[in-house]
């Protein structure tokens, strides 16, 4: 059973700008001895500030809040990309982040090669990948194009392929950053159906979104964030009411 547990999680980004990021700053700082009061006075952005919550199998959580509220950072912490500076993150279940459907594709490799490459990035075994190829091929409707380098594809075709690969896996926990593009209009309906099935298959969904419509459709819980802090956590209607007020 999938579950997610966050306890007093803190994430702070040190800001290094220009000279302060370089070695010169460090060296000059040392050589001029104590001109700057304390080296521990870094400028930091608090991206997550004391966040705690618990999710169980079947939970569909929406992360809502203004730009810069910490939604993306939260997704990356859940994915295990950022290790929090302090606090505990306990995730049980196979996790799949889907932030940018197009990452890790090689334009000079064929569609088939890209399916395998992406599968390896996602941590699948050779056999697991081969089992999925037929399904992916059928969904993209790209036929003979899959044997050609991806560089020759139109934008829409590339999106079809990356979307099909990304949604072919069976994660127990799905992390979605809103609006993964789905190509031309004829394809959108088909893509939506696939996306819904994909989401329904997973044990836990965490979705970062600005679209209240999307949130109501998919989620039963919501977390309202502001400046990296939790403002409200609870049933989706209550939290949305607070957000819209």
């Amino acid at each position: 059973m999938a579950s997610i547990e966050l306890q007093n999680v803190f994430v702070r980004f040190p800001i290094y700008q220009g000279a302060s990021r370089s070695l010169r700053y460090r060296l000059m700082n040392a050589s001029t001895g104590g001109r700057i009061a304390s080296q521990n006075h870094h400028i930091c952005v608090e991206a997550l500030n004391n966040v705690s919550f618990h999710l169980d199998h079947g939970d569909r959580l929406a992360l809502i809040g203004h730009n810069g509220a910490g939604k993306t950072t939260m997704l990356r912490v859940l994915a295990g990309i950022y290790t929090p500076e302090a606090g505990r993150v306990k995730v049980e279940g196979r996790i799949a982040p889907l932030f940018d459907a197009g990452f890790g594709m090689d334009p000079d490799s064929s569609g088939y090669e890209n399916i395998r490459l992406r599968g390896l990035y996602l941590g699948l075994t050779r056999q697991q990948i081969e089992d999925k190829v037929a399904d992916i091929v059928a969904f993209t409707e790209l036929g003979p194009f899959l044997s050609m380098p991806m560089r020759t594809y139109s934008n829409g075709m590339q999106t079809r392929l990356s979307f099909a690969i990304s949604t072919s896996i069976e994660p127990e926990i799905l992390l979605l950053d809103e609006g993964i593009g789905t190509g031309d209009s004829a394809f959108i309906e088909k893509a939506n159906v696939r996306l819904h099935k994909f989401i329904e298959r997973t044990g836990i969904l965490v979705l970062a979104s600005h679209s209240n419509e999307l949130v109501r459709k998919f989620c039963n819980k919501a977390l309202l964030m502001e400046h990296g802090r939790m403002v409200q956590f609870g049933p989706v209607e209550d939290v949305l009411a607070a957000y819209e007020r």
Binding site: F10, P14, N40, H41, H42, V45, E46, N49, T83
Partner: peptide, 21 residues
């Protein structure tokens, strides 16, 4: 996000990070 002058940086426990690395 709040911009703060970070003086109270929490020191994380070392072993966990080493294990990760």
């Amino acid at each position: 996000m709040t911009i703060t002058n970070d003086t109270t940086r929490a020191r994380p426990e070392k072993p966990r990070f080493a294990q990760l690395g």
